[in-house]
Nucleic acid binder design. Structure first.
Lengths: 129, 129
DNA sequence: TATAATTATAGTAATCATTATTATTATTAA
DNA sequence: TTAATAATAATAATGATTACTATAATTATA
């Protein structure tokens, strides 16, 4: 196994993830971090986002359209995805703690976690339409 | 607006979706329907799967790896996705009916639906490891 | 502190899933 | 039966992501 080595690029990516609340795509992270590191490569962004997700320092959010999104907020919470504009928004909804066990009752494998995504229209799209 | 025209290819795709319980990817549908229509195009498969989903005759399941999957069972239900092999399995868990309203309480837009995916290890991967 | 070892990067090519294009074919309406 | 039109097959194009490789940055060691 290889040991993790510091990199300023990864630090900048992590910082941006933690400061942003828009659940950016890899490309959005790329655009932002390029202000500090004009030569950073999109591959570097992807590699580090996935690394941070593996380390548990970020969450990868699978969406139906427009690529995965990333979230620096690692505490369990749920998301809303607007079917009009695709934006992802944090929800204030307490964690469903018993569903994993409930789902496991009639199931032959081992259930460890779940993710839930809510869909509809965000307030921006309601107002601007 | 254009009127829908019958096609034997679409009929075969629909039939396969309804007979299968493995939540096939577009490519799996393609492989199967090719036995009846050797010249069918992958584009035709994609177009019809999306069309069926739009018509409400199938459900598109977004997964973290390996492409979207399709389900001919349209009654609301939840899925499990194995983190080892990627297989998608139906769960016997009753629908969470109040979460949409609960999520909407502190939210500025309109929430219409949700999807939930459970993760863990399926029984095949537990046994074969 | 200099040097060696090793990981990370930039730049680029390749891959995978999906959608778009277009000439031809199948279905439906007149 | 013919005309209108939607669907298809074949292929090209796109978008998101990963793989490759020579160089640069970081860390360990002498």
């Amino acid at each position: 196994m290889s040991t993790l080595k510091y990199s300023r690029q990864r630090e900048s990516i992590k910082e941006y993830l933690n400061s942003s609340c828009e659940h950016p795509t890899a490309d959005m992270v790329y655009m932002s971090v390029r202000q500090e590191f004009p030569n950073i490569s999109l591959g570097t962004v992807y590699r580090n986002l996935n690394l941070l997700a593996d380390l548990g320092e970020a969450i990868k959010i699978t969406t139906p359209n427009g690529g995965d999104r990333f979230d620096g907020r690692t505490a369990p919470h749920y998301h809303f995805c607007c079917t009009k504009c695709g934006n992802v928004i944090d929800l204030d909804l307490k964690e469903l703690t018993h569903v994993n066990e409930a789902a496991n009752e009639h199931f032959d494998g081992i259930i460890e976690s779940h993710s839930m995504m809510f869909y509809g229209t965000c307030s921006d799209c309601i107002n601007n339409q």
